[in-house]
């Protein structure tokens, strides 16, 4: 089962997966290791690019996996090209992950709404 948890910055996504999906602190990391939950995907996308992140995730999609990502791109188009590209990259990558996910949960002020 692949669960994607998205929402704005500091909306309680990590707290949500601890509380609702019974994930322990030891199982959470911003990395592609043995951790059950990968948090702050947006940081990994900024560091490595969306395509590389999707390739890493392909290896994980065969077993249970919880992914958390900040929703970005809901502001004025940035002046800097690299920032514009970053927002588009997060968007495209998350569209692809959302398609593969069994569940997508959007967290708003700590409250999760299942949208898929």
């Amino acid at each position: 089962m692949i669960v994607l948890v998205i929402g704005g910055r500091a909306q309680g996504k990590t707290e949500y997966i601890r509380r609702e999906l019974n994930v322990t602190d030891e199982e959470i990391a911003c990395a592609f290791g043995e951790n059950k939950a990968i948090v702050h995907l947006e940081k990994l996308i900024r560091e490595r690019g969306g395509e590389a992140v999707l390739r890493e995730l392909e290896n994980r999609f065969s077993h249970d996996c919880i992914l958390c990502c900040d929703e970005v791109g809901m502001g004025i188009v940035p002046m800097e090209k690299s920032e514009r590209d970053y927002r588009d990259d997060v968007g495209r990558t998350l569209c692809a992950i959302a398609k593969r996910a069994d569940r997508v949960i959007r967290v708003f002020a700590g409250i999760g709404q299942r949208i898929k």
Binding site: E71, V72, M74, G91, L94
Partner: peptide, 13 residues
């Protein structure tokens, strides 16, 4: 008839 689709950058709107 009007239909509105909104979303952020790269949201697939």
């Amino acid at each position: 008839m009007i239909c509105v689709f909104s979303g952020g950058s790269g949201s697939g709107k």
